[in-house]
């Protein structure tokens, strides 16, 4: 599903910051991967490289067999639209749209009419337990609710790849737990590959592979055999 070969990424012109260096990584379909490490270890850069928002300075990034550097910006964008669902620490919902509209938005980007997209979004909202909040705008929702909307939006088009950037980072532990359980269940159901950057070992506990980064390199890559949806 994801294949990184000798990937490096550096920023800046004078004082160069090496965010990722010489990274090799392979992630198979339906894997659940947590990426951990201290601040500045290159976790977010890795995510950005995989979703094609950023390009590597060296090496190759392949997603679903496609070499990202060979794709145009538009093609990479289309890849995100069609194959990658993203969940952010700061939710990144569109503030002017309601919960329902936010969830329906990826479908509408894919060309579905409003009348076709919104029933699907409504049932997705039911799945994430926000049946009664569908007409609320993000600023009328709690943090946990916002993240549920974000998850619903990320999964509505059944992406091959689900990327999470600290999905529970902005939430209290109870809400975080709920979100993780939800994510776990849905990921299993949709059989998406999950790659989640997190500081939170509780969150990592939901994954069957934990990669630890330090200074832009993989220092540990552990696999666990965990039953999905159990969480422990």
């Amino acid at each position: 599903m994801i294949q990184l070969t000798g990937v490096s990424k550096s920023y800046g012109l004078g004082k160069v910051v090496q965010a990722v260096s010489g990274m090799n990584l392979q992630i198979g379909p339906a894997e659940r991967v947590a990426v951990m490490g201290p601040s500045g270890s290159g976790k977010s850069t890795l995510l950005n490289l995989i979703c094609g928002l950023d390009g590597p300075t060296a090496g190759s990034v392949k997603v679903d067999g496609m070499e990202l550097s060979a794709l145009s910006d538009d093609a990479r964008t289309r890849l995100r639209r069609e194959k990658i669902g993203m969940i952010f620490q700061t939710f990144n919902l569109l503030p002017t749209l309601t919960a329902l509209e936010n969830v329906a938005f990826p479908l509408r980007l894919q060309g579905l009419a409003k009348k076709d997209a919104e029933p699907r979004a409504a049932s997705m909202l039911v799945r994430v337990g926000l049946k009664d909040r569908s007409s609320h705008r993000p600023d009328e929702l709690s943090g946990g609710e916002r993240q549920r909307v974000a998850i619903a939006r990320a999964l509505i088009f059944r992406p091959l790849l689900l990327l999470g950037d600290e999905p529970t980072g902005n939430l209290d532990s109870v809400s975080g737990e709920e979100i993780l359980r939800l994510l776990d269940g849905l990921q299993h159901e949709y059989a998406s590959t999950l790659l989640m950057v997190t500081h939170n070992s509780q969150a990592a506990g939901y994954c069957n592979r934990i990669i630890t980064l330090h200074d832009g390199r993989i220092v540990k890559d552990e696999r666990f055999d965990r039953a999905p949806a159990t969480g422990r």
């Binding site: 928002l53 538009d74 964008t77 289309r78 993203m86 569109l94 990826p106």
Partner: peptide
């Protein structure tokens, strides 16, 4: 600014 970022991350092309 941020809205544009979200749209781009959701797969809206530059054009």
């Amino acid at each position: 600014w941020k809205e544009i970022g979200i749209l781009r991350s959701l797969g809206v092309e530059r054009r």
